[in-house]
Nucleic acid binder design. Structure first.
Length: 424
RNA sequence: GGUGAGGUGCCUGAGAGGCCGAAAGGACCGGUUUGCUAAACCGGCGUACGGGUCAAACUGUACCGAGGGUUCGAAUCCCUCCCUCACCGCCA
């Protein structure tokens, strides 16, 4: 959620930035926000002044009663009654204005940062780096879903039977590899200074709202109606909400957290060739990074996270590329996002395995995550997050890219975690 | 799930219709004293939204788990919900 104050002071800049995100009717919505905020201030003043009269009259009544002046008290009561009559409609208007202001404000996406490329579609994303070597596979190389069957690593049909499509069973060495990835990623992150958490996998409504899953992305989450809990689509949700309504000390920044969790996504309406095998699932394993930082250092933190994830991919010897997402392809809440994609050699396409974003104050404004600066003033912190990494697609590319007649050769970093150097 | 007790500021904890944005202590911040550390003493110390101001000072309103209600007036009384704790039941 953008800050009204900021919009008011930087109207032109806001419009210009919103254009980079291809947000239509920006001027209309922005001006509506400003008008509603004016209305809100006016009504607030009116309400406060009337209420102040009620309060002071009530105090007098108390004194009059104490001094035995019953008739004086009675006449003051009449006055109060009149004030209160006036207060009702003002209160009603104020509430509806505040709600409308809020509802309008949340329609505005975050402003893209200065380095965000202009552009509308994924083709306009700016590739900033590549790393690793794209392997040439031997004749007869197959996609991961065939490899999974060949080595008995994943059972998609069994998942269909027990739950439904998009909920695979990992088995044998497949399950072991999945566990190895999670452990390796977590260790890699903690040794870089991230604190390990293991969050709840269900969150309440306030938390789903806090990170912006609600109200607009309602249909993408699984909802437990009985208890009104939501299955987390990413551990970003519980992790960022740790700090909801908190005022941190400046010395506590930056906060760096990593956590494993399964992620649950309904992915309603996405079917077809892109969702085959491990490419897109309703439940998948992921290790996440979250940082809560001083506003002045968030872009530095973003670079640090990007290079951290990059090192992790390098240690897996996977061919990757890093994209600076263009305004049109970024998420609603992000100010800048770098996507990591790895090359799936058998499918011959790039698969997104991580998305690292700076949200600036967009999330923290909604969640009221602040810190006390050296002047004793409360300021919003910046929040960032990124995956390190999404397991299924890493698994898919590891299988495909490293297939040899002698089995699937795993990168050295995983040998101890997996307990072997290959799947054979 | 049942029964009981509770939810007050960063923490502990008082307050039981007006004198309460809230005692006291601790923590924290600033200062004095001090060979260092510690202690002692003095002062400060919630949040949000308004008004006001160059900025302050100052000032209004709201907030004592959440939402309603009673009342001229609610942290305090009533209702609903949420949560916590204890015991019982069930259970990895």
């Amino acid at each position: 959620m953008l800050q009204v104050q900021f919009i008011r002071q930087n109207r032109e800049l806001v419009l210009e930035r919103l254009a980079v995100k291809h947000f239509t009717d920006a001027a209309v919505v922005v001006d509506e926000v400003l008008a509603l905020d004016d209305q809100r201030k006016k009504l607030t003043l009116e309400y406060d002044e009337t209420q102040a009269k009620v309060n002071s009259a009530s105090k007098e009544i108390g004194k009059l009663m104490a001094s035995g002046d019953k008739s004086g008290a009675e006449s003051r009561k009449q006055e109060v009654a009149a004030f209160k009559q006036a207060l009702g409609p003002i209160d009603e208007q104020l509430r509806s204005t505040e709600k409308l202001l809020h509802d309008t404000l949340v329609r505005l996406p975050n402003l893209p940062g200065a380095d965000v490329p202009k552009g509308r579609t994924p083709e306009d994303n700016l590739e900033i780096r590549r790393g690793g070597d794209i392997p040439t596979l031997a004749e007869g190389a197959v996609p991961h879903w065939d490899l999974a069957k060949k080595y008995d690593l994943i059972d998609f049909e069994l998942g269909n039977k027990v739950t439904g499509s998009g909920f695979p069973f990992y088995k044998n060495k497949g399950a072991r590899l999945q566990r190895a990835l999670i452990s390796y990623f977590l260790d890699f992150n903690t040794s870089a200074g991230y604190t390990e958490f293991l969050p709840p996998f269900l969150v309440n409504e306030a938390s789903a709202y806090g990170t912006g899953q609600l109200p607009d992305k309602e249909g993408q989450m699984y909802h437990m109606q009985e208890d009104n809990f939501y299955l987390i689509p990413t551990s970003e949700v519980p992790l960022t909400n740790v700090f909801r309504d908190e005022i941190l000390k400046e010395s506590e920044l930056p906060v760096k957290i990593t956590a494993y969790s399964p992620c649950f996504r309904r992915e309603a309406g996405s079917y077809g060739k892109d969702v085959r095998g491990l490419n897109r699932l309703h439940q998948f394993e992921k290790v996440e990074l979250v940082q809560i930082v001083h506003p002045e250092t968030s872009y530095q933190a973003l670079q640090e996270m990007v290079s951290h994830v990059e090192k992790l991919l390098q240690s897996l010897n996977l061919p990757y590329r890093i994209l600076n997402l263009c305004g049109g392809d970024m998420s609603f809440a992000s100010a800048q996002t770098f996507d990591f994609e790895v090359w799936s050699a058998a499918q011959e396409k790039w698969l997104e395995v991580s998305s690292v974003s700076n949200f600036e104050t967009f999330q923290t404004n909604r969640m009221k995550v602040r810190f006390k600066d050296e002047n004793g003033k409360n300021q919003l912190v910046h929040s960032l997050n990124g995956s390190s990494l999404a397991c299924p697609r890493i698994m898919a590319t590891l299988l495909e890219n490293n297939q040899t007649p002698g089995g699937i050769l795993l990168p050295e970093a995983l040998h101890t975690y997996f307990g072997a150097d290959r799947i054979a």
